[in-house]
């Protein structure tokens, strides 16, 4: 009886410890492990929130086969930074105020966070944010890419996105004429 009781208590303690763990371990497609704040992960990612609530988080590393280690490191970095940052008034203010746009401009640290990324890393991070259902990170990264596109010529944009021009010369000329107004003073 004594032994059983002890065992039960130990089991109980282990369960409590698991529930109390304030981080979760994520595993990238290439097998690297990353620790991330459970609270921030659940708050920032609808997919991770669902996994945490559904109990499908693996202590030995939850497999995220679609995300490479560099992108996952950035995701985790973003979550942990978010966990430590004090939300500014702009982020916690209600979206129903009269004059503010519903999209909140990136915070200073978010701006710096995406500014330091290479094109490759930024594009991978957009995909990871989309896969994990991280609305805010998707906003911040897409915002950054759209800023990179502003004022650029179609050629420059093709270069950024590594896209091949599949128009004929005539077609392109036709579109350019149709959109002449969009090409003034830049």
């Amino acid at each position: 009886m004594e032994v059983d009781k002890g065992k039960g208590e130990a089991e109980e303690t282990r369960k409590v410890a698991e529930a109390d763990r304030d981080t979760v371990t994520l595993k990238s497609s290439d097998g690297k492990l990353f620790e991330v704040s459970k609270e921030a992960a659940a708050r920032l990612s609808t997919v991770l929130a669902g996994m945490i609530a559904g109990g499908s988080i693996d202590d030995n590393g939850t497999d995220l086969k679609q995300i490479g280690s560099e992108a996952l490191e950035n995701v985790v970095d973003y979550c942990n930074k978010h966990a430590n940052s004090i939300p500014s008034a702009a982020l916690i203010s209600s979206s129903i105020s009269f004059n503010t746009a519903p999209f909140k401009e990136p915070e200073e640290w978010e701006r710096k966070f995406v500014d330091r990324l290479s094109h490759d890393a930024l594009f991978d991070l957009v995909e990871a944010a989309n896969f994990l259902g991280m609305e805010r990170l998707l906003d911040v990264t897409c915002h950054k890419i759209s800023e990179m596109m502003k004022g650029k010529s179609p050629d420059q944009i093709r270069e950024v996105f590594n896209i091949k021009n599949d128009y004929t010369k005539e077609e392109l000329e036709e579109i350019r004429q149709e959109l002449a107004w969009a090409f003034y003073d830049d």
């Binding site: 759209s146 179609p154 944009i157 579109i175 959109l179 969009a182």
Partner: peptide, 15 residues
């Protein structure tokens, strides 16, 4: 997320 002019210009990028 692009302003109108940049968006229209982007039609020239590819089909």
């Amino acid at each position: 997320r692009l302003p109108a002019r940049s968006l229209c210009r982007s039609k020239c990028v590819s089909r």
